[in-house]
Design a protein around this nucleic acid. Structure first.
Lengths: 307, 307
DNA sequence: CTGAAAGCGCTAACAC
DNA sequence: GTGTTAGCGCTTTCAG
């Protein structure tokens, strides 16, 4: 019957349906946009987005993409108020800032949403992320197993929960390995390759303090490898290094970069799946949930100790 | 007055508005999704998407993201029929296949749409792309100016209009430089790094036939550089090579890859801008338009002839 | 120029 | 079970 109707050129008007059911059939995805500067790797976002898209499609929902300004307070609630979306997936949220305030607003109004790739400082926010704590631990253990003993840790900004997670995982594993946290050389970049490049100068100046480096992501790791190479230090030869993300670039670096693989696609999928189930269940308010997906250490040459 | 209303907790219901105005206020963006295999670089899509997002936001429209299956005939018309979108931007269309048939349907029904990054075989389809013809010409000229004379051309599948453009640009410039097209070594990959890696074997076997390579994109170029390096041939030293896209990876390759920069962001912006203007003008049927944006040759070490 | 009313295309509730 | 109708929140039209 419906097929017959379609053959006659009839299509149900989804807007009319949304109007009466009070459900748009769309879920919103908010991501930060920084014109001309990409602090986040495009890899990161496109993988998560694909995962979301996969799941959303499967449930017959639409996916409304919303770029937000990097600075200032985003209005996560507006598309709910105007009934354009039924739920929101929010990427790249920093802790303790305007983004979190805006998320708290959503919570107050009972709008279903989930953070992806960062937890936010309140446990009442639903969130899906990778287990960066465990991932960084694996990186440390691997380096120690390779025979490295004096580790440097180049982290990203601590406004991201995953940076905090990495720090925790790093320190916990350092202790577990019987090493002294006080000996660790800490540096902080902004997750960009250029910040890795800059940090390489500082690392070189203190090269007697470390024999291996854990970098918060591949992009910084790559910048460090390049910066140290300029100064005559070769990854894998003169020091070990592990990145994080398993980006394409990590594979083509010379030497190839050992890295912590993060299941971005699965993270997007998981978050979308939970949110959509919540919508379908029709409950007034979704219980906050937290999902932490496992990471995997991908061992390449950059962390293999030369003999 | 509207602000006062908002203070009282009122928000206009965008769905109700769409219902009555018969306009969803959303632009659809269709992109191919290949689970676990990325033939397209994520860079390509995320840049175009950002450009679209920038423009769409500016006009107060929403951006509905639609992943389509790699195989089979996509239903570009459905979201129009169900009134979920007012116009469509379609990425990654192959010529002469089911995607084009689906696009032809849109055209027949008078739905506004624009292809981005590929033209389609019919000039009646609106399209925005980079000037790959000119870009590849620049690459050839540069290599010849560097003193290379026997060029190899590793193109992508000819189902993409940009591959055809590159072929034309390549041959035209070869002739213009007084070289013989018949001498050129032609190979075809699928734009992935692994296909470049495989093609490197063939290139190596015929290494007496070329002293420089033009690759259809960076990913293949990188694969070629890596594959030839395994066999002892060093880019920049033993041969020159130029890629295309100016991807992040091209910068970290060793040696850094000379490449044709493609204004992806601007392409997305231009297409969205034209389509949105068309919608606002309210004309029944949008005149088909074609925009071809200039490329830029980014010279790095891989194409500099050693002395 | 201001204010009332019709109607968009569906779903859900209700009557038959 | 099947058929009818009210009504969702806007915009547009038409009357005052």
């Amino acid at each position: 019957m419906l097929e017959a109707a379609e053959a006659l050129g009839y299509f149900p008007n989804a807007i009319a349906k949304s109007f009466v059911t009070q459900r748009s059939g769309n879920i919103g995805v908010s991501l930060p946009s920084v014109p001309n500067v990409r602090l986040f790797s495009t890899y990161y976002f496109s993988e998560i987005l694909s995962g979301i898209g996969f799941e959303v499609q499967k449930h017959g929902y639409g996916l409304l993409l919303q770029f937000r300004e990097w600075e200032g307070k985003p209005d996560f609630a507006l598309p709910f108020h105007t009934r354009k979306i039924d739920a929101s997936l929010i990427l790249g949220v920093r802790m303790g800032g305007a983004e979190e305030e805006a998320a708290a607003e959503l919570e107050r109004e009972g709008m279903p949403f989930c953070l992806i790739g960062s937890r936010g400082s309140s446990p009442s926010f639903s969130a899906v992320d990778a287990d960066h704590c465990e991932g960084t631990g694996k990186a440390v253990r691997h380096l120690v197993e390779q025979g490295f003993r004096r580790l440097a840790f180049v982290n990203g900004p601590l406004v991201y929960s995953n940076s905090v997670d990495r720090q925790q995982g790093f320190e916990a594993e350092i202790k577990r390995q019987g090493l002294d946290v006080a000996d660790v050389l800490y540096l902080e970049g902004n997750y960009s390759r250029s910040s890795g490049l800059e940090l390489a100068a500082q690392l070189y100046a203190q090269r007697d303090r470390f024999d291996a480096i854990v970098a918060g992501n591949d992009r910084m790791g790559i910048g460090i490898v390049q910066g140290l190479k300029e100064r005559g230090m070769l990854a894998g030869n003169d020091y070990g290094i592990v990145g994080c993300d398993d980006s394409d670039a990590s594979k083509i670096l010379e030497p190839p970069l050992t890295t912590v693989r993060v299941p971005f696609f699965e993270m997007g999928r998981a978050a979308a799946s939970r949110i959509l189930e919540g919508l379908k269940s029709g409950e007034a308010r979704l219980e906050p949930f937290h999902e932490t997906l496992p990471t995997e250490l991908i061992i390449r040459e950059s962390s293999l100790k030369a003999r």
